[in-house]
């Protein structure tokens, strides 16, 4: 066989494999959405599971937990990414931190969940609550968020730092006003992608945020009140946990309907996050990078 032919064959083979993967994903997602298409109604989205066949509170809980998790993990991740890329030279400390990040990112999420249960729920006494869940999810989220921010910061040439410093500006200000702004497209897509993961996570939440979704009052803004939607110390079953629960408890014919509908919402939201991440980072790159 001549080289030209080999080249063509391998190229077609690769195209075929890529096509196969894409087809597999499309079939998989298509099937899930097709299955639940009749379940997703306005009533389904706006009814509490306590009084009917709805997922209103679970959907809100998922979003609330997501926001809290990001609020907790974003500053920590950005701080460690900056410390590891800009400030620290390669030494034992940074290698240790890198290793910790890698270990943490390969930890099964059920372990994170059990740690949350033993430490946050029991020892610290936060109980099954939004806060316990958010902290557990922070542990779960931190490694990949930090990794993606390290990547975003490393994409900014170090010559920028040198340029800023040579203008008599402190390293800290160059970082704040030049390096981080330039890394924002990467940072944002990292956040949104990790948001998708957090939104779909169940195992880390079962024993931390709990498996019950008390009916919430969306007009009660008093965060200390038990049925306030904002209360961070109330138990908060999320969408993903809800799917897991209705399926394991098997409460008859409705379980099937609920989980099919909930899956559609979960998949759509996660896809939306991914789509958004792409659009936003492309847009910012164009605006910022001038390419």
């Amino acid at each position: 066989m001549n080289r030209y032919l080999i080249d063509r064959v391998t190229r077609h083979l690769i195209q075929l494999l890529v096509g196969l993967v894409v087809a597999l994903i499309l079939i998989f997602l298509g099937y899930l959405i097709w299955q639940g298409r009749h379940q997703v109604t306005w009533t389904f989205l706006t009814t509490s599971s306590e009084v009917g066949l709805g997922i209103r509170d679970q959907l809100f809980n998922s979003l609330y937990l997501l926001v809290l998790t990001l609020l907790l993990s974003f500053p920590i991740a950005l701080g460690s990414a900056v410390a590891l890329t800009i400030y620290a030279k390669q030494n034992i400390f940074t290698r240790l931190a890198q290793m910790a990040i890698e270990v943490l990112s390969s930890l099964p999420s059920i372990i994170v969940g059990l740690f949350g249960f033993l430490f946050l729920v029991l020892k610290v006494g936060l109980g099954f609550s939004v806060l316990s869940g958010a902290i557990a999810l922070t542990f779960f989220n931190l490694p990949i968020l930090t990794q993606s921010m390290i990547l975003a910061l490393k994409n900014v040439p170090t010559s920028r730092l040198e340029a800023g410093i040579s203008l008599g500006v402190s390293q800290w200000h160059v970082l704040l006003k030049v390096i981080i702004p330039e890394a924002i497209p990467g940072i944002i897509s990292g956040i949104v992608l990790s948001a998708g993961r957090v939104f779909g996570e169940a195992a880390a939440l079962i024993y931390t945020a709990g498996q019950s979704a008390p009916q919430l009052d969306y007009h009660n803004w008093n965060i200390f009140s038990a049925n306030s939607f904002l209360n961070p110390l109330r138990p908060a079953e999320t969408l993903a946990v809800h799917i897991w629960k209705v399926n394991t408890e098997n409460i008859g014919i409705d379980a099937d309907k609920i989980s099919r509908g909930a899956i559609v919402i979960l998949v759509v939201v996660v896809l939306l996050f991914n789509f958004l991440a792409r659009r936003l980072s492309n847009y910012l790159q164009q605006k910022n990078g001038g390419r």
Binding site: S159, R160, E162, I165, S166, G168, N288, G289, G290
Partner: peptide, 17 residues
Amino acid sequence: LRQKIGMLFQQPNPFAR
């Protein structure tokens, strides 16, 4: 000091703005 004694490098390094 660095305001009074400026520096230019081998590779042009403007900020991407």
